[in-house]
Computed example of a mutant assay.
Amino acid sequence: MAKQEFRQGPNGPYPITPRKGGGAKLFVGAVAVVAVVGVGSAAGLGGAGIEAGTVAEALPGNVSGDVVDSLPGRSLKTRTSEARKSAERGRKRETFGRFKLKQLKHAVRHEAECLAAATGRVRDYLARHRCTALDRALYAIGDGHGNAAAISVVRVGFPKKSDATGCEKVEEVQGSGDLRPLGAAALGLAGFSFSGHHYDSRIDKRTLVVAEAETVAGHLDAGTLDALAEVSVWFPRL
């Protein structure tokens, strides 16, 4: 049995969830992230904490209490299944609504060059296998009661599907480096860092898509964070 690894967080150590291929993806500046923050709390659970006042200023629409639960009484499994269907259709607001969350802000950047955004062995791989496009996005979402999230998704295009699959294999290995996400400052959430604890990836034809979830302040349970990463990776375009 593999030895359980832990990461030190602001509230003490927590176990690292194994990723596909038997490894655990751990890094600061994760490829994609869901950062949950509470306006009434500055305590961080995963990455660096953000001041409560900063969150309130950056996401003023998250205190209106106007979020409607589109799947009242449904289990997380059902919410995740329905959210994936919405994500596959590119309906991001509907996807978030499946978890009783709403989109507050978003930022997207389309680039033709990947090396400047890559580190470690991921960068080495990209130096040998040219990427055709790098798309990075962050989506701020919230529950209307002060708890908010910033979802980041990264899509890396390649000339061949085998190149995308090869990059995924490197990306999944612990300590292999990463493709830096679009900075959280793009949503006015400067001061946030990512651990890579809740992670998912997939191959979309010749494109590698990676998604990540992370609690920063406030509370969202681990299962929901995993589910958010799991469905966000299915967005067909950013």
Score class of each variant (00 low, 15 high):
104 L>S: 07
121 R>W: 11
139 Y>N: 08
85 K>F: 06
217 A>W: 09
181 P>F: 02
89 R>D: 12
171 E>S: 12
234 W>Q: 04
54 T>Y: 09
205 K>G: 13
104 L>M: 09
71 L>N: 07
197 H>T: 07
197 H>S: 06
154 V>L: 09
187 L>E: 08
119 T>C: 08
111 E>A: 05
204 D>A: 02
200 D>S: 08
211 A>M: 01
120 G>E: 10
47 G>N: 07
46 G>S: 00
233 V>D: 02
182 L>V: 06
157 G>V: 02
134 L>Y: 08
74 R>I: 09
25 K>C: 01
222 A>V: 12
68 V>G: 06
193 S>M: 07
136 R>N: 10
167 C>K: 10
2 A>Q: 15
195 S>F: 00
36 V>C: 12
42 A>W: 11
11 N>C: 09
180 R>D: 14
91 R>M: 12
168 E>T: 03
195 S>V: 13
140 A>Q: 03
116 A>M: 05
28 V>K: 10
158 F>R: 06
173 V>M: 06
59 L>N: 07
216 V>C: 04
104 L>C: 10
49 G>T: 11
36 V>R: 02
209 V>P: 11
238 L>F: 15
132 T>M: 00
43 A>S: 08
145 H>V: 11
151 I>K: 03
194 F>Q: 04
48 A>N: 06
101 L>W: 14
169 K>E: 15
131 C>V: 09
173 V>N: 01
45 L>T: 14
203 I>R: 01
84 R>L: 10
233 V>L: 07
57 E>W: 00
181 P>H: 03
143 D>C: 05
178 D>S: 14
186 A>V: 10
185 A>N: 14
43 A>P: 00
64 S>L: 14
197 H>I: 01
56 A>D: 09
229 A>N: 07
102 K>L: 08
138 L>V: 14
94 E>A: 02
53 G>L: 03
116 A>T: 09
127 A>N: 10
158 F>Q: 09
119 T>G: 00
39 V>S: 13
130 R>W: 04
164 A>R: 04
138 L>P: 07
113 E>L: 09
188 G>Y: 02
70 S>Q: 12
142 G>T: 05
84 R>F: 11
205 K>R: 13
66 D>S: 01
32 A>W: 15
45 L>Q: 12
210 V>S: 06
